[in-house]
């Protein structure tokens, strides 16, 4: 991964390894099942995301969209099936007898290197000032020099429009500002994949547009692959190349935003869009 330049224009993803043609998808769900007790959230889910793609996941609440992000971030364990990221199993492998072998902490940390996440409730660390929120992991996880990490953090804060808030406590910021810091914090780890979990749902309406605009910029100016769960259909239309419509733990329909929003094939999609638009 390039570390010489702090610019957002750098390719965040590494080049395809020799021997592969680059068509191997970056993320692949292979018959992934997630159950809570008897309740099936994801039902043998198959889908892929290509490198650099910006994918929006839409669907009624409870359809399993957020669970997908949480599985990718290894915050939850799959019940069955395998998730592949960049050709490697993410959180567990399948033994020859078909049962799952969970990964150890070491392998999980290897997997998480490529992935970053922004949460609905921001989840900034209240015991750290804004700057340290952003530099903490680059310094202590990536082993970056503190000075370099701080320079980079200031650049990111500048980009998200909060250059003046370096020394603020998270509690002194508005929701929208906190979410911008959270986005900067995730980017500071140079993820190849950025997971966005309803990042505007907890914001006051007047703060939503700014955050969405920022995410649009990131989508246009970087190679970061984005998986985005949102109820902002405008965002889905403007930023993503691909929309996945979920219902009851399965992908009901997928396609370009134009296709999904103007000419949905599936009845469930039509119903859902009618309800939210």
């Amino acid at each position: 991964m390039a570390t010489d330049s702090a610019s957002l224009k750098e390719p965040a993803g590494s080049a395809p390894a020799p021997g592969t043609t680059g068509v191997e998808p970056l993320v692949r769900f292979d018959k992934v099942v997630k159950r809570y007790g008897d309740h099936v959230v994801l039902d043998e889910l198959d889908f892929t995301v290509k490198r650099g793609e910006h994918v929006t996941l839409i669907g009624p609440s409870g359809s399993g969209k957020t669970t997908i992000l949480r599985l990718l971030m290894t915050l939850e364990k799959v019940s069955d099936g395998v998730i592949w990221v960049d050709g490697s199993p993410l959180s567990h492998t399948r033994k020859p007898d078909g049962s799952l072998k969970p990964a150890g902490e070491k392998q999980l940390r290897e997997s998480r290197k490529k992935i970053g996440m922004v949460f609905q409730q921001f989840n900034l660390f209240p015991n750290m000032k804004v700057l340290q929120n952003i530099t903490e992991a680059p310094v202590n996880v990536l082993g970056m020099e503190r000075e370099e990490a701080e320079t980079r953090a200031r650049e990111l804060l500048d980009m998200v429009g909060l250059a003046g808030k370096v020394d603020a406590h998270p509690s002194q910021l508005s929701g929208g500002q906190q979410q911008r810091v959270a986005i900067a914090r995730a980017l500071a780890m140079r993820p190849e994949i950025l997971l966005l979990d309803e990042v505007t749902s907890a914001l006051d309406p007047e703060l939503v547009a700014g955050v969405l605009e920022l995410l649009g910029d990131i989508a246009r100016n970087t190679n970061i692959t984005m998986l985005c769960v949102t109820h902002e259909m405008n965002f889905a239309r403007d930023v993503s190349e691909k929309v996945l419509m979920f219902d009851a733990g399965r992908v009901v329909e997928s396609g370009t935003p134009e296709k999904i929003f103007t000419d949905p094939e599936h009845e469930r999609t039509r119903e859902f869009l009618n309800a939210v638009l």
């Binding site: 915050l75 998480r112 290197k113 660390f125």
Partner: peptide
Amino acid sequence: EAAVALNMTP
């Protein structure tokens, strides 16, 4: 969860 997402050790 936020700490996990930043790949911190336990």
